[in-house]
Simulated scan of single mutants.
Amino acid sequence: MITPQPTSKPAIPNFSSGPCAKRPGYDITQLDLSTLGRSHRSKLGKDALHKVITDTAEILGLPEGYRVGIVPASDTGAMEMILWSMLGPRAVDVCYWESFGQGWYGDIIKQLKLEKVNKISADYGQLPDLSQVNPENDVVFTWNGTTSGVKVKNGDFISDQRQGLTICDATSAVFAMEMPWEKLDVTTFSWQKVLGGEGGHGIIILSPRAVERLESYTPSWPLPKIFRLTAGGKLIEGIFTGATINTPSMLCVADYQDALNWIKQIGGVQASITKSLDNLSVLEAFVADNSWINFLAENEQIRSNTSVCLSVELSDAQIKTFINLLAEQQVAYDIGAYKDAPSGLRIWCGSTVEKSDLQALLPWLAWAYQEVTA
């Protein structure tokens, strides 16, 4: 049966997995721009930074004693800062199942040149055997594989009696998935993902155990200023109260505050999680009805509800045509799989994407498939 070209289009066709769609109703003219042109070291600037830090902790429901800090260079900068500052005193288990986790493993063995490193890995679409994680070791892992569409089911693989630290890259998970904070010693993310913020800044969340490591351990290698979290053997508390390591964009900070305010307005982080899961259900129903498209993560228990990765029964050239057709029709932008991932689609389903836009997209997916296979 011939599928006619749909007439209805998504109101917002932005389905990129980073930077992600702005929140519904976003209006840049509504941002509080009072900090622009002012020093981030001024009382006004520090107060604005302190507020996003405290709001982040409050909305996420972080345990007492956990610290939130704003650092340079997005989630990548946050993770590199932690790897270079904290690894070394214990063996390290590195769990990965996609390109970014594999990158952390490469940095640990090739740049830091640590010798006691255990690789626990799986192919795209799969999750490795996390029972191999040794509670005596530090463990580095991604909560949600942004480029594979695979997330950990929960934190049960992390021992409550662990001796090592858990270091979690959660950039496409925080604000969209349940996070067992008591099991996470270091968590990094960037507000450009689930909250649709602007790029360039990372967030680090430290548990008291992580602070203890920072204050009791000095790496054998030199640390550039931009990576230093301690001075004189003590945590630089200012980083976690509003005195950033380098100059932040106060426009980006105002944008982040707007996103945090929106999360509060819709009912908090649980509402954000529910909205993302509802978005995933739209694609799940479509995949169930169409044999030519499948989830890269076949196991629904480990399937991401943010960076949804899909395989399509098309050649690489046909997939490029498919993606270009949708962009030309202005119904879906930036939905190609990550460059290192298997060829296919990647559609962001975080809470800043409206369910109605995903529903409007589905007929266009069927139409585009018909067009390239005709």
Rank of each mutant, 00 (worst) to 15 (best):
G267Q: 10
K119H: 08
A48Y: 00
N294L: 12
V174A: 01
V353S: 03
D47A: 15
I82E: 01
Q111R: 09
F240R: 08
I28R: 12
A210D: 04
T230K: 04
C168A: 11
A176E: 02
I82P: 04
D138N: 04
I109V: 15
Q318W: 09
C349S: 11
N279K: 06
Q301N: 11
V186N: 07
D107I: 15
T274R: 09
D123A: 15
I2P: 11
I302T: 15
I204F: 03
P248Y: 13
A210K: 06
L314P: 10
K151E: 05
W367Q: 03
N299S: 03
L31W: 05
P6D: 03
G199D: 08
N14V: 12
E300K: 05
I245Y: 01
L206W: 10
L251D: 06
V331R: 08
T166S: 14
A21W: 06
T7Q: 15
Y256T: 09
L49Q: 03
V308A: 03
V139N: 01
L33S: 12
S42P: 00
Y124L: 02
M179H: 02
D55A: 13
S8K: 15
T171R: 12
L260D: 04
G232E: 11
A259V: 00
I226E: 09
S315Y: 10
Q330R: 11
Y333G: 01
D55G: 06
D255T: 08
G61H: 03
V308D: 00
L83M: 12
L214H: 04
L280M: 08
G232H: 13
A254S: 14
Q330L: 07
A254I: 04
E115P: 00
V92T: 15
G344E: 00
D258M: 13
P363E: 07
V331F: 13
S315W: 14
D357G: 10
E198A: 06
I109D: 01
V71Q: 00
T218I: 15
G268R: 07
A297G: 05
T171V: 10
Y105L: 13
A11M: 02
R23E: 08
L325R: 13
T373K: 14
K46M: 13
S99D: 06
L310E: 02
G101Y: 06
V133D: 10
E371W: 06
I205G: 00
V150Y: 02
S148F: 02
P342T: 08
E58T: 06
A285V: 09
V287I: 14
A73M: 07
Y96I: 04
K275Q: 15
W104G: 00
S8N: 13
M1G: 12
G65E: 10
T244R: 14
H50S: 13
E98Y: 01
L165D: 01
K51H: 14
T171F: 12
V287A: 00
H201G: 09
D156Y: 10
N305E: 04
L325N: 14
A297N: 05
